[in-house]
Simulated scan of single mutants.
Amino acid sequence: MSVTRTRQMPTPRRTIGQRWSTTEVKVAPYLYVAPFFIVFLIVGMFPLLYTGYLSFRKWNLIRGDLGPAGWSNYAYVLDQARFWKGLGNTFSIFLLSSVPQVIAAVLIAAVLNANLRAKTFWRMGVLVPYVVAPVAVSLIFGQLFADGSGAINTLLTTMGLHPIAWHGGGIWPHIAIASMVNFRWTGYNSLIFLAAMQAIPQDIYEAAVVDCANRVQTFLRVTIPMLRPTMIFVVITSTIGGLQIFDEPRMFDNIGMGGADRQWMTLTMYLYELGWGSQHNLGRSAAVAWLLFLVVVLIALLNFALTRRISSTGSTTGHRRGGHR
């Protein structure tokens, strides 16, 4: 009885070039994204964690580290009336700037998306305010909203209206500061919405024309629903930037302290006052920074949840309407 043995062919050894090609395919994607994470760890994550460490220390700007502070820095900050006033001012300026800004940006993008002459000129023109330095914008608007003989008050007097104390109490200084923010960022957001509008397929608009929809109906029922993902992005970025506003209120007057009664002092200005003002207490300043970070995260998550809910509700409604046709 004979047994036939099959000889297995030896596996050919790969060359160094083949091994390098396989390794390169596996490692290359990580090398491409590595620079971003390295820079983020150095200029983003490390300062954030180090600020958290400082918030638990008695760290003086002049004398240095004076020992552990525990939660006393947070207790001190939360017990100060200026912190809550700065938080209220921050939210007031944020709402007065972000809400009109998004609405105006969508409308401007719709105009720029129409058949205009010299499209490139107008599209570049709306971006010019974004290029201007915040300090220059604050100085110019500071003259426009000057009390008494400012350009806005002069116009109001010409129209027979009473001049407004833009640097006084109430909501007027918040409106003036919000106008600076809107001037700088509306054009930038308009180009983002314009790019999203140009990505909408034309056959959707053609279907709306076939259904006898006019321009207003097409804009409200086709363009706006298709812009929901972009709106989520713009709202979240506007929230993060609006809650960290510093340059505009800082330069709104010559003192730079948020008014005599801190009527337009924001949280970032209070943070600056604690760390580099009269107290020179970087520990308490770091505590304000972390509290502001938590507020920004909570508001951003709330905005994200609300916009996602609105987006999902709109898409579900669209599917239902499509099913009834």
Rank of each mutant, 00 (worst) to 15 (best):
Q8G: 07
T23M: 05
V216R: 14
R262C: 09
P47K: 05
L191P: 07
I310W: 07
F94N: 14
F193T: 03
F91Y: 14
P100F: 03
A146T: 10
F36A: 11
V132N: 08
A133M: 06
L49Q: 07
V135A: 09
V3Y: 08
A75W: 02
L282R: 14
A133N: 15
V126I: 14
S149E: 09
I108L: 09
R57I: 02
F141Q: 06
A118Q: 10
P29A: 01
P100R: 08
N281K: 04
N254M: 04
D211M: 04
V234R: 13
A146S: 13
L95Y: 09
S311L: 01
A260N: 12
R19Q: 15
V235G: 09
P68R: 03
F91P: 15
S190P: 07
G67Q: 00
G142K: 05
T4H: 08
P47S: 07
W84D: 11
F94R: 09
K119H: 07
V39K: 03
M257G: 10
N115G: 08
V27P: 03
V27I: 09
F183K: 13
W166F: 05
V210E: 02
A305M: 08
R63G: 05
H280M: 10
Q263A: 13
I299G: 10
Y53G: 10
L41C: 14
F304K: 15
G17H: 04
A178M: 05
P134L: 00
P68K: 00
M124D: 14
L31C: 06
T90C: 04
A199I: 00
H174S: 05
V39H: 04
V222Y: 02
I310L: 10
A199G: 06
W122L: 06
R321W: 04
G323E: 13
L78F: 10
F40L: 08
H324W: 06
L301V: 15
Q217P: 03
K119N: 10
F183V: 12
V33T: 15
G169W: 01
W185M: 09
N73F: 00
M231H: 13
G258H: 10
F94L: 08
T237I: 14
H324R: 15
V288A: 09
L294R: 14
L31G: 06
P229D: 02
E273C: 02
S92V: 15
I177T: 11
F94Q: 13
S21G: 11
G241V: 06
R215C: 03
I108K: 04
V102A: 02
F91K: 13
R14L: 12
P10L: 05
W20P: 00
A28E: 02
F246C: 06
I200W: 00
F304D: 14
I240A: 13
I62F: 08
Y272M: 08
L66S: 13
C212Q: 14
N189T: 10
L282T: 15
N281C: 00
S55A: 02
L294C: 15
G142C: 01
F193G: 03
T15I: 01
